[in-house]
């Protein structure tokens, strides 16, 4: 399979802190890749460099053969690389439906449709449906139809998370980067939510990279795992193999168990 995304020799330092040190990864088209590692290991820095939020100090990123290293986030989005956020980035004063419509508006505008001089209602590129129908369909696919007319700022945490991911779907992304899609969701709900997300996303045929701390979720959904530690990739293999790797066990899985212990030791409010 051909690589849709190719990162070569990415380095990024914040003062004395090394957030990325010689990161190399080629992502195949239509694959599902899990990014694991403890906090500060470099997962989000990797996502931020791909999406243009951070510029690497060294190294290049190629997408479909094109160098995207120095492009602005909006230009990278326009090429088909979309992302969700660890803390959902929504339009707080708008309803779930209006959030979708605002996103669709950008897609229409970038395609030069629905402008001041155009007549009639345009069809959203990629979806070939009118804007309102696209919004309703995506909301439904993410199980958000009941929240359609609720303001984003009053939605429960898990729903905000889903809406954040649903928003990325309006642009028909070719690559989708999900930053901790199940954080803040109870462990029982994690699988249900992840199942829904993957079904919705895969139906659109996107390549997926997701950051996840729950190793069961990773084993269940990822086809390939990139394990980060101290700004480096210490393992790049299918989940069964990667999670058995000695370094991964020591630095990542061990770290996650440590996190779990901490969480359990914390007194409940």
């Amino acid at each position: 399979m051909a690589a849709i995304l190719d990162a070569r020799g990415l380095c990024k330092n914040f003062g004395a802190v090394t957030a990325a040190s010689d990161i190399n990864a080629a992502i195949e088209r239509d694959s599902v890749v899990g990014l694991i590692g403890t906090n500060g290991a470099g997962k989000t820095t990797f996502i931020n460099m791909i999406t243009g939020y951070l510029k690497p100090d060294r190294g290049r990123i190629h997408y479909e053969g094109r160098d995207i290293t120095s492009l602005a986030p909006r230009d990278i989005t326009r090429l088909g690389i979309c992302r969700s956020f660890q803390i959902p980035q929504l339009y707080a004063s708008l309803t779930a439906f209006e959030n979708m419509m605002a996103g669709i508006g950008v897609v229409l505008r970038n395609a030069g449709l629905g402008g001041f001089f155009s007549r009639g209602e345009p069809l959203v590129p990629g979806h070939n449906l009118p804007a309102e129908e696209v919004a309703a369909r995506i909301l439904e696919r993410f199980g958000l139809a009941d929240y359609r007319d609720k303001n984003a700022q009053v939605l429960p945490g898990g729903v905000r998370k889903l809406l954040d991911i649903a928003l990325t779907m309006v642009a028909k992304p070719k690559i989708l980067l999900l930053d901790e899609p199940t954080s803040g969701v109870s462990s029982e709900e994690k699988f249900v939510i992840m199942e829904m997300i993957m079904k919705a996303v895969r139906a659109e045929g996107a390549t997926v990279l997701f950051v996840e701390h729950d190793m069961e979720v990773v084993s269940r959904f990822a086809e390939r795992v990139l394990a980060f530690y101290d700004g480096r990739i210490i393992a790049d293999a299918p989940p069964a193999e990667a999670l058995e790797n000695a370094e991964v066990k020591r630095f990542v899985v061990g770290g996650e168990l440590h996190r779990l212990d901490e969480a359990q030791a914390r007194p409940r409010a």
Binding site: Q89, G105, L108, N110
Partner: peptide
């Protein structure tokens, strides 16, 4: 128009506007 409708989105969250592909 899409640009006109973008106003409340810009007011709420410019980061998201940028990551949806607009300036």
């Amino acid at each position: 128009t899409p640009l006109g409708r973008l106003a409340p989105a810009i007011k709420d969250n410019e980061i998201r506007v940028e990551y949806m592909g607009a300036s």
